[in-house]
Design a protein around this nucleic acid. Structure first.
Length: 553
DNA sequence: GTAGGGTTAG
């Protein structure tokens, strides 16, 4: 824990120059690993020649002829010590090896070219000599969780092999993949299949279906699933009801949550979470007087509004930067003997930091300690975030090191925050060291770990590092989602890497993702500008309804 | 699966 005088010095520091110096890297203990002890004479050259590419192939319809004017990339420059790490990385196979491919690798290769339907995927897999007993279906589904055609193909292929049965958990995972892809007809067929299997549908299944429906704004269908929950063999209790309300609220349908609540409150015994979910929903929708009404109803039904209830109001006022009312709620809590907890303090500190009031934010940290409320890893994550945002990277680094000393283990969020901040300041080597450290710390990277790294690679035109990251992702079974494809297409477009942008664009469309209009327009405009007419037409064919770029005089 | 997550363009 930082001592008081250290905190005060943090609070008074406003010089961005103290952010980072070379020595600060020693804090991380990385120096030996990253000192240039490469045995290779020219790391960046060997890196270049031996990289097995995870970048999508440039489609034939992207004409190279007119790309001569694009700015040349920074590809030739790779930090030598970084290249060494990439080369020696245990998990990422960058060199064509003599070792035979594992079955999972073989399947991944087969699935690399996008298929039009799961049935064709099944055919392709049947044509191979692979058996389900050689692979982890779980790993494959995770790896292809954003390519529903591939995932469902693997699922069906595995299921039809003798001596193998999917576990209920795997069925649930498949339900979630189909839900994420908004393939609700297929999802309902799968539910029907699970119903026949007896005992396969559980509350987890129901939660996933309701959440995915609500996220797709299909609120009435989510409610209908709940109404029929008993037909599916799941108890219609308060846990299930809270799951429904929570799904509706998270899908921005508090109105529907309220209607469902009115319909169901007489037949199911409620608990205080039921009310808190609605309070949260109304606070999120900035309908504070409705949230107050729920609080009153909560009281009438014999439930005390608690820390969670008040924290929802605090969050709402924080969003408006209305700190006067935040303090008023804190007073109200004190009056009612309701103590703020780490979540409450995190929200306030985060909002103060985001509002540029870093001093006030650090006062919240002090207040919290005075109240003997222990910070958790999310709290530290927020503290690191606001310090980084204020340009105080050195302080953020200190907190990152300090939390470990306090016995709070950094989690994926903490690492993601540190990585994102490093990327935001274009500190490539630091960001990659953090990824490495994350791995050593057995902290699993997720899609938000990679997103800022990929974005930075696009911005700095680091195609080799981009390629490295894509294979790193694959090896960690992290699947590229819609947001990340968008980021890649936009980033590459902005860097004049139109061929690669087109490659990712094609890949996302072939995976069944529908690119946003703005991204299509952007790509079409850039292609037009570069006179890449064939590519422009192809992009327009891939996604109909792309508007012609406006002609600017 | 009751509250804390940082995205986007201009």
């Amino acid at each position: 824990m930082l001592r008081k005088h250290q905190i005060l010095s943090l609070a008074s520091s406003s010089n961005p120059q103290r952010n980072l110096n070379v020595n600060s890297l020693k804090l991380f203990g990385f120096s030996p690993l990253f000192s240039s002890t490469s045995t290779s004479t020219n790391p960046s050259a060997s890196l270049d020649s031996s990289l097995t590419s995870e970048l999508p192939d440039i489609p034939s319809w992207v004409s190279k002829q007119n790309t001569g004017t694009q700015p040349s990339g920074d590809d030739d420059f790779v930090i030598p010590s970084l290249a060494t790490w990439i080369e020696n990385h245990p998990k990422v196979r960058l060199f064509p090896t003599k070792k035979p491919e594992t079955p999972v690798e073989k399947i991944t290769k087969i699935l690399k070219c996008p298929y039009p339907s799961p049935e064709i995927v099944v055919q392709a897999l049947n044509a191979s000599d692979l058996s389900v007993s050689d692979v982890s279906v779980d790993q494959l589904l995770k790896r292809f969780s954003n390519s529903w055609i591939s995932a469902y193909g693997v699922f069906i292929w595995a299921k039809t092999q003798s001596g193998y049965t999917h576990t209920p958990e795997l069925y649930n995972f498949m339900v979630d993949v189909l839900g994420k892809a908004k393939m609700f007809d297929l999802l309902l067929d799968l539910i029907e299949e699970m119903k026949q299997l007896k005992g396969y549908i559980n509350l987890d299944t129901i939660f996933k279906v309701m959440r995915r429906l609500a996220n797709a704004r299909r609120f009435s269908e989510a409610i209908e699933v709940f109404r029929r929950i008993e037909e599916l063999g799941v108890e219609k209790d308060v846990m299930a009801l809270n799951g429904l309300l929570d799904a509706l609220v998270k899908g921005d349908g508090v109105e529907h949550a309220c209607e469902a609540f009115v319909e169901l409150k007489e037949c199911i015994p409620l608990n205080s979470s039921t009310f808190n979910i609605l309070v949260h929903g109304f606070c999120k929708a900035r309908r504070l007087s409705d949230a107050r009404k729920i609080l009153n109803e909560m009281n009438e039904q014999g439930f005390q509004p608690c820390t969670v209830s008040f924290t929802c109001f605090i969050e709402a006022y924080c969003r408006e930067k209305d700190f006067r009312n935040v303090d008023a709620i804190l007073d109200e809590m004190k009056e009612k003997g309701c103590r703020p907890n780490a979540v409450t303090y995190t929200i306030i500190m985060h909002a103060r930091g985001k509002a540029g009031e870093i001093g006030k934010a650090l006062e919240v940290y002090e207040m919290m300690k005075k109240d003997s409320c222990l910070p958790d890893s999310s709290f530290y994550g927020s503290l690191i975030f606001i310090l980084s945002k204020a340009g105080r990277l050195k302080d953020a680094d200190e907190i990152f090191e300090d939390m470990v000393k306090q016995g709070v283990k950094p989690n994926a969020l903490t690492y993601n925050t540190m990585i994102s901040s490093s990327c935001g300041h274009s500190l490539e080597e630091k960001a990659l060291k953090l990824l490495k450290r994350m791995e050593e710390d057995s902290c699993k990277p997720d899609i938000s770990t990679y997103a800022p790294l990929l974005k930075m690679c696009c911005r700095k035109k680091r195609m080799k590092v981009l390629n490295f990251l894509l294979s790193h992702m694959l090896n960690n079974d992290v699947s590229i989602d819609h947001t990340t494809y968008t980021l890649l297409v936009r980033g590459l477009c902005n860097s004049g890497k139109l061929e690669q942008a087109c490659a990712f664009f094609e890949e996302m469309v072939l995976k069944g993702m529908i690119p946003k209009g703005s991204i299509c327009t952007m790509l079409v405009e850039k292609l037009e500008k570069e006179d890449m007419i064939e590519a422009k037409q192809k992009v327009q064919e891939l996604v109909p309804n792309v508007k012609e770029p406006k002609i600017t005089v």
